[in-house]
Design a protein around this nucleic acid. Structure first.
Length: 336
DNA sequence: CGAGTTTGACCTGCGC
DNA sequence: GCGCAGGTCAAACTCG
């Protein structure tokens, strides 16, 4: 999934005012992403004025001794920082392994949940939709074109009834990971929603909230939001219909939304980690599998990587946390 | 005071 | 036809 991730290089000052370059890479053209932390303390680059020939000059024996001490000192520092670099690499590796494990567990849960587990009473279940599922890092989407399969219709039926049984609007589902302690059923997708109802459903103790798009008065899109019965940290948002107006974020592109408008995604960072919002209700992603094709396309992944990188590097919490971690490791082994 | 939310009542579809 | 459950309405309420 993650083809390539390269975050901007940051510079931090270590206690003796030596700049440390920090670069995080995630590389995985073969589908196996990896992380590395390069503190930029590779081969020692001595200043061009390093007096290599001073030792041959008896006039500078004393000075050369002090330079030698200084070089040894620098070399020792370099070795220490290389060790730190290695340790941080290992830490990142183990963190990424944990993350991968948790993610696969989450997807296992999702793939076996609502339908397969049969938690919904089979005899009472209403006509179900056939949904296409799109996995997308921390979020999973399902989508259907919603074409009605109902067998229609006799000439005796009145026009009102036939009107009601028009093909269903497009339906897509979004699984959003949130803080379980957060009781609000808010899915930030960039649109303006007006809540018009709430109901406790039979198969889920969490209430389901009903929203209508209020950005445009005539917009027919509705949204149902409910916490997952299996994992209350996951909010399931079901979108019905297509917006008949532009995405509100197109008027505020400075908030991390896609710049070209062709891929309706945005990236945000909160306490639970980076969140990627992909709006499948926009017309830019057509039904019938083209959405997943778009996600798989190199262009989409490149834009996604750019979005993630720019969001992370703009986020002061991330840079501060990274700087703190580096400081912490360095201060554990202060320079001699 | 207007916009948004809450919540009980009502409507509708589906299975028996 | 009845009962159940999901979905919607609209009056009351809250908040800025």
């Amino acid at each position: 999934m993650l083809a390539f991730l390269s975050l901007d290089t940051h510079r931090y000052l270590i206690p003796d005012n030596q700049p440390v370059c920090c670069t995080i890479n995630g590389v995985g053209a073969d589908g196996s992403p990896s992380l590395s932390l390069d503190l930029g303390v590779g081969p020692l680059r001595l200043p061009e004025h390093t007096p290599r020939k001073l030792q041959t000059n008896p006039m500078h024996v004393e000075r050369s001794a002090s330079f030698k001490d200084e070089a040894e000192d620098l070399e020792a520092k370099l070795n220490r920082m290389s060790e730190e670099n290695k340790k941080l690499n290992e830490m990142l590796g183990s963190m990424y392994a944990d993350y991968s494990t948790l993610r696969s567990q989450l997807f296992d849960l999702m793939s076996t949940s609502p339908k397969e587990k049969g938690l919904v009473s089979p005899s009472r279940k209403r006509k179900s939709e056939s949904l296409e599922t799109i996995s997308f890092d921390d979020m999973t989407y399902e989508r259907t074109d919603g074409i009605s399969n109902r067998v229609e219709s006799t000439s005796r039926e009145d026009p009102c009834k036939r009107f009601r049984e028009d093909p269903k609007p497009k339906i897509s589902k979004a699984y959003v990971k949130t803080d379980p302690s957060d009781t609000t059923l808010v899915v930030k997708d960039g649109y303006q929603w007006r809540k018009y109802g709430q109901k406790v459903t039979r198969d889920n103790p969490s209430p389901r909230a009903y929203f209508r798009c209020s950005f445009a008065p005539s917009c027919p899109v509705k949204k149902k939001v409910q916490r997952s019965a299996e994992d209350t940290s996951i909010i399931v948002a079901t979108y019905e219909g297509e917006h008949n107006h532009v995405h509100p974020s197109q008027t505020e592109l400075a908030h991390g939304s896609c710049h070209n408008g062709s891929l309706p995604c945005s990236v945000s960072i909160n306490s639970s980690g980076p969140t990627i919002t992909l709006d499948l209700t926009q017309q830019g992603l057509s039904p019938g599998g083209s959405a997943s094709r778009e996600i798989e396309s190199p262009e989409f992944q490149r834009l996604l990587v750019e979005q993630m990188a720019s969001s992370l590097t703009r986020d002061p919490n991330f840079t501060a946390a990274l700087a703190t971690a580096i400081f912490g490791r360095i201060l554990q082994h202060p320079p001699a």
